[in-house]
Write a protein that binds this DNA or RNA. Structure first.
Lengths: 93, 93
DNA sequence: CAGTCATATAGATGGTTGTCAATATATATG
DNA sequence: CATATATATTGACAACCATCTATATGACTG
């Protein structure tokens, strides 16, 4: 994963609502309507956030009838975590 | 560390130049003029980036004569890394 | 088919960001 | 003191962002 890519993912995670969404998806796949119940934003705003998270590859989704189901793209997220973890400081990892 | 605080740090790391700066500081303390040599930005732009990194607590600095020396604030950075590492996905940590 | 529900898109708006040129400040040096 | 060096501040500008309202799309349901 390149530095540019990491910067893009960091930007996606630089909004508290989106960070919360990622943490919610930690518990497993969720549909948009469920996420919407928990967040204090309108539906179009949620749709925008999900697009940002999807565009950077952090979140995957599929459509099931009228529901859109979202989940963390584990491979991508693990790559990101590995990059961050590898930035050493004070001799610690 | 709160989610809000993590979001702020993510925002600070969401610029490729700043991410590069952090990686450079990994090798140890550096003065502004040294950082400036490696980056394709003007001095005021570097000064701005260092302020962003300092304001969120990720970078510490002290003045030594005319030089400003910067280094990673290890405690803060480790807190951030721990928060990110704790976001589970696919049952992996 | 008409209505309802989940989601996406369009367009607007106020705020933020990265960047630069110009300038100021502070420190060292001859 | 005059000059050079390192850094910070100011002000401007174009681009981007989070959010909203309004509207469209698409899918199920009676």
């Amino acid at each position: 994963m390149t530095r540019e890519e990491v910067a893009v993912i960091c930007k996606a995670m630089s909004d508290a609502n989106r960070l919360r969404i990622i943490e919610m998806l930690t518990q497993g796949e969720k549909c948009g309507c469920h996420l919407l119940e928990e967040l204090q934003v309108t539906q179009p705003t949620l749709s925008h956030h999900m697009k940002v998270l999807s565009d950077c590859g952090l979140v995957s989704s599929y459509k099931d009838g009228k529901w859109q189901h979202y989940s963390i793209n584990c491979e991508k997220f693990k790559e990101y975590k590995a990059y961050i973890a590898a930035i050493t400081c004070c001799g610690n990892r």
